[in-house]
Amino acid sequence: MKKQLDEIHLSYFKLQRPKENRGNILVFFLIFLDLLGLLPLVSVPFSYPFFLAAIIPAVILHLWAIIYIIAPYRFEHSYYLFFGVYGIVNTYVFFLTTQKLLYANIRVEGSMSFIIGFLIFVGLIITMNIINVKALHSGTYAALQKKGNTMNISKAMSAAGIGYVLSQIILTFVFSEELKILIFTCLLAIISILTAYFSIFIHRYFYMNKHKDKLKQVYPEFGLPKKSRRMSA
């Protein structure tokens, strides 16, 4: 039982290096939050209520991100809380972008679309976190890592972002405006699954905080400034 418990801890302590955390911020913010989320909100026709609802948490998140760009080693632990919050905010911005396209571009009327969309957004976040906790304690993560089923999320997201840009260029020349909006909305829905998944980092943050002793056994220099570490992480 102790061995199984240790494997569960280790499966959750597969952490990226601080400089990779900094790279995540640059990739995810520029491509997913700013390009895919905020940019469509400032496009014509402009909707001030949707823009205001998105820009406030987005600005706060951008300001919060500065410390992880400047000092990713010193703030290595709180990065996981930050990245989990980012996942929620980015998914929320995608929800607002989708609603803006429906109401301002396609001219959907009534509040039903907004209510259903919001419930789906909340349900998606909750579902991802329930699945995460079950996968952790059932040993699913440990089993997958034993089989070598790991994925570099940063590279996958970068590829997805590049694919989006290329597809948008093609769509501009091929399809009508309404069809492009429909396809873009579907794309946001798919990517929202990924950004909602990032919300599980909040649970990981508190899990690491609760099991600091075991975390330090795996990463003795975790959370230390770069100059205090024996070698570059």
Rank of each mutant, 00 (worst) to 15 (best):
K180Y: 01
L101Q: 12
S199L: 08
I193Y: 10
G23N: 15
F13G: 04
V133N: 04
F198A: 15
I120F: 14
Y197V: 04
F175I: 07
T150Y: 01
T195Q: 14
Y48T: 15
L166A: 15
L124Q: 14
G110P: 05
Q99F: 00
R229Q: 12
H211V: 03
F121K: 06
H62I: 00
L15A: 02
S158Y: 06
D34F: 05
Y86V: 02
I183H: 09
L61G: 02
G23R: 13
I193K: 07
P225A: 02
K216E: 05
I181Q: 15
A189F: 14
E221K: 04
S78A: 07
L39T: 03
T172L: 15
F175H: 09
E221G: 02
P45H: 08
K100R: 15
M1I: 09
G123M: 10
L182T: 13
I169V: 15
Y68V: 05
A196I: 03
A233V: 00
T195L: 12
L33E: 07
L96R: 12
E76A: 08
Y86L: 01
Y205M: 09
T150C: 01
K134P: 00
A189I: 04
H62Y: 13
Y205I: 07
I8E: 11
F206Q: 12
E221V: 01
S43M: 11
N129E: 06
A233Y: 09
G23Q: 12
T127W: 13
L187C: 09
Y80M: 08
E7P: 03
Y164E: 06
I193M: 13
N209Q: 14
A135K: 11
Y80Q: 12
F118R: 06
I202F: 08
V218T: 07
V89I: 13
L15E: 05
V133R: 14
L26H: 05
Y12M: 13
F46A: 13
I170P: 06
F118S: 10
L52H: 01
N105Q: 10
I125R: 05
T91Y: 00
S11C: 02
K227Q: 14
L96A: 09
F198N: 15
E177H: 07
I56S: 07
